[in-house]
């Protein structure tokens, strides 16, 4: 069995993951869209915080697979390898 994909959950969203800072996805997603879909099947409250109602990642939310920003690897279609670590990070914008 291949190594699971793991999400790192920011503190502000752990209220929706029973306090867990990391969440492992059971099956093997091939794209970021697959992985996110599996994540919010487990924890539905995450979806509307991370994505808009049109399914796009919110403007000020950054997602990294490993250390690479998905903006440069194909967005939601970014490939996700077994054992990947995916980080969800709010941007540093704002006033």
């Amino acid at each position: 069995m291949s190594a699971p994909v793991t999400f790192h959950i920011p503190g502000a969203l752990r209220q929706f993951t029973r306090g867990q800072g990391t969440v492992a996805i059971g099956h093997s997603p091939t794209t970021l869209a697959d992985a996110l879909s599996a994540l919010w099947t487990l924890y539905p409250g995450l979806r509307d915080r991370i994505a808009t109602e049109q399914g796009e990642i919110r403007e000020h939310i950054n997602i990294f697979i490993g250390e690479e920003h998905v903006r440069y690897t194909g967005g939601l279609m970014s490939p996700v390898a077994a054992g990947s670590e995916i980080s969800i990070v709010p941007a540093i914008s704002g006033g």
Binding site: F16, P44, G45, R47, D48, T52, E53, Q54, E56
Partner: peptide
């Protein structure tokens, strides 16, 4: 209240986001 899902959302056919 802290709804799991946003209750006000544009339908898919509008292509818009709140």
């Amino acid at each position: 209240t802290n709804p799991q899902e946003a209750t006000i959302r544009f339908p898919a056919d509008t292509g818009l986001s709140l």
